[in-house]
Amino acid sequence: MPSAPSGWPSTSISRSGFPMNFRKILIIRRDNIGDLILTTPLFEAIRQRYPEAYVAALVNSYNAPAIAGNPHLDAIFSYTKGKHAAGEPVWQAYLRRAKLLWQLRRMHFDCIVLPNGGPVPRALKLARLLKPRHIVGFVGDRGRAAAVDLAVHGDGGKLHETEDIFRLLAPLDVAGPIPGLTVVPEPDLAHRLHSRLPEAVASGNGPLVALHISARKEKQRWPVERFAELAKRLHEQYAARFLLFWSPGDENNPFHPGDDAKAARLLTALKDLPIAPVATGQLSELIAGLALADCAVLSDGGAMHVAAGLGKPIVCFFGNSSAERWHPWGVPYELLQKPSRDAGDISVVDAADAFGRLMTRYLQET
């Protein structure tokens, strides 16, 4: 391992018994948008414990906008996965990745943290390529423990994903309480989106409700006809206004199926209500659009965690995913999940009642 630069303190021992000399820290999280957002409390906790340290994150180009502008990071490094290399030869993406890894290796990180819900061989291989002084990660067997010198053992059991990966900060001498999520919208983009809203949607006495109708997994999807009926009830009872979000594209696209047709049907069904579609071809647009809303109604998924990171109260539909592991973190929420573990079995009455409870709780807490 490389030696510490001149003038740096020698290694000390933390309260947890691990060696501690962390002046350059890299967090690697390469997976989905929601997973990365649930990692943002680690950024804040590390910054609070090591205010003078250089703290950076390595992510992929697809999820990088989820942490753009994060105030607790000094730098965000991203690379393009081969499957996301649209409009260019895959080899160019791989070449840029190799150059980035060489750059990171020359930065001589003291510590690399691998915040995944268990051992992830690919992430570990990537960390070892960068030759840090220490690697912090979960281990499940002796072979992995040899590579992860600051190892955290045991599974998270029934912990939330954020609680589970927060256990990885013990070797950095970081303890709770766990901060909330952090998602930062682009101010100029949010302003532009707001300026395009119809007057009936942009202003009013009722809450501005984000409706996100898409979900990647079939059992997480709530029927668009129920979104229509729910919107009518919320408008009648609360004078609610609406922003409509969906995954763009044609439903028959084999690579990136979208819900353009469903969104068009919903807009037709709600033509007499104050509702505006918000195009979200980029993740940054989804973040900026959700930032405009007062609250959100949507299924479990990346958009739900974006909304939580923006501090929005949430009504969420869960199908066959674990509510214990993935519920919204750090915000008021009402979670609906049926014994069938199919979101399609959640009724409009269920959703309307949950919205009422959420509004009552939110008003009481604010």
Score class of each variant (00 low, 15 high):
P2C: 03
P5V: 05
W8D: 01
P9G: 04
T11D: 10
S12W: 06
I13F: 08
S16H: 09
K24R: 15
D31T: 06
L36I: 14
F43Y: 15
F43C: 06
R47G: 04
Y50C: 05
P51K: 13
P51W: 14
Y54A: 05
Y54G: 02
Y54C: 10
V55T: 12
V55D: 03
L58C: 01
V59Q: 00
V59C: 00
A66I: 04
A68P: 04
G69H: 01
P71L: 00
A75W: 13
A75L: 08
I76Q: 07
F77P: 00
S78W: 06
G87N: 09
G87T: 06
P89Y: 10
L95V: 07
R96F: 01
R97F: 02
L100Q: 03
C111M: 12
L114W: 01
P115K: 03
G118I: 05
V120R: 08
V120W: 03
R122C: 01
L124Q: 03
L124I: 06
L126N: 02
L130F: 11
P132C: 13
P132D: 09
V139T: 15
R142D: 15
G143Q: 13
A146D: 05
V148C: 07
D155L: 12
G156M: 02
G157I: 00
L159C: 00
H160Q: 12
F166W: 12
A175G: 09
G176L: 07
P177L: 04
P179I: 02
P185Q: 07
H194M: 07
S195E: 13
V201T: 11
G204M: 02
G204N: 01
L208Q: 04
L211D: 02
S214H: 12
R216C: 04
R221F: 10
W222K: 10
E225H: 10
E225G: 02
E229L: 15
E229I: 10
A239N: 15
L243V: 08
L244Y: 09
F245I: 14
S247Q: 14
S247T: 15
G249C: 14
A263P: 04
L267M: 15
L270H: 07
D272G: 06
L273F: 13
I275N: 08
I275H: 12
A276W: 10
P277C: 10
Q282I: 04
S284N: 06
E285F: 06
I287H: 03
A291W: 13
D294S: 11
C295F: 09
M304S: 12
M304F: 09
H305N: 15
G319A: 08
S321C: 10
A323C: 05
H327P: 00
W329E: 02
W329N: 03
V331R: 13
V331Q: 14
K338D: 01
S340N: 05
D342V: 04
A343W: 06
G344M: 06
I346G: 05
V349W: 03
F355T: 03
T360S: 11
R361V: 05
R361T: 11
Y362R: 12
Y362E: 14
L363S: 09
L363D: 11
Q364M: 07
T366Y: 07
